[in-house]
Amino acid sequence: MPANKKHLTKSPWQRFAKITAAILGGYLVTVTFHLALSSWFDKTVVLITMTFTGFMLWITLMILAFLAKNGWKVWAAYLLLSGICCLATYCANL
């Protein structure tokens, strides 16, 4: 049974933004989040934990990217979250 056409993204740019935000943006947020955690907590524990939580967080961010209506807003949110995590990493290393 084919998908209902009203629920599909019509713009190829929105489709491109959602796919890249899901794969690249989700991975960027996942890595920077765990990098921030490793700068505040024990690196060994965070590295072991990241093998499980990193995959779960990345998949969750992928799903959220496709649930949104606008792919560019998802990119903006993921870049903002990555920036906050990078700022936390920088503050921890001061």
Score class of each variant (00 low, 15 high):
residue 21 A to P: 01
residue 49 T to S: 14
residue 53 T to V: 11
residue 79 L to R: 04
residue 70 N to M: 07
residue 25 G to C: 01
residue 89 T to P: 07
residue 67 L to C: 13
residue 66 F to A: 02
residue 24 L to P: 00
residue 69 K to I: 10
residue 11 S to C: 08
residue 18 K to L: 00
residue 38 S to C: 08
residue 58 W to V: 07
residue 13 W to C: 11
residue 36 A to E: 08
residue 91 C to V: 14
residue 81 L to N: 05
residue 93 N to W: 06
residue 75 W to K: 04
residue 35 L to R: 03
residue 41 F to Q: 09
residue 76 A to C: 10
residue 76 A to M: 11
residue 62 M to S: 11
residue 31 V to N: 11
residue 34 H to P: 01
residue 5 K to W: 08
residue 66 F to R: 02
residue 28 L to F: 01
residue 54 G to Q: 00
residue 75 W to G: 03
residue 28 L to Y: 01
residue 59 I to Q: 13
residue 80 L to E: 05
residue 78 Y to V: 04
residue 56 M to A: 15
residue 34 H to D: 03
residue 56 M to T: 15
residue 40 W to C: 09
residue 38 S to M: 11
residue 53 T to P: 03
residue 17 A to Q: 03
residue 41 F to A: 10
residue 13 W to T: 09
residue 76 A to V: 12
residue 82 S to E: 00
residue 6 K to Q: 12
residue 35 L to T: 13
residue 3 A to Q: 14
residue 37 L to R: 00
residue 20 T to A: 08
residue 86 C to R: 09
residue 29 V to K: 01
residue 78 Y to N: 05
residue 83 G to S: 10
residue 80 L to S: 07
residue 58 W to L: 00
residue 63 I to P: 00
residue 17 A to N: 08
residue 58 W to C: 01
residue 94 L to D: 10
residue 57 L to N: 03
residue 62 M to L: 12
residue 29 V to F: 02
residue 49 T to I: 14
residue 1 M to Y: 06
residue 38 S to I: 10
residue 87 L to H: 12
residue 58 W to M: 09
residue 30 T to C: 02
residue 42 D to Y: 04
residue 12 P to G: 09
residue 28 L to H: 01
residue 29 V to Q: 00
residue 73 K to A: 14
residue 53 T to K: 11
residue 88 A to P: 03
residue 32 T to I: 01
residue 31 V to A: 09
residue 23 I to Q: 03
residue 11 S to V: 04
residue 79 L to V: 12
residue 47 L to A: 10
residue 41 F to K: 10
residue 55 F to L: 12
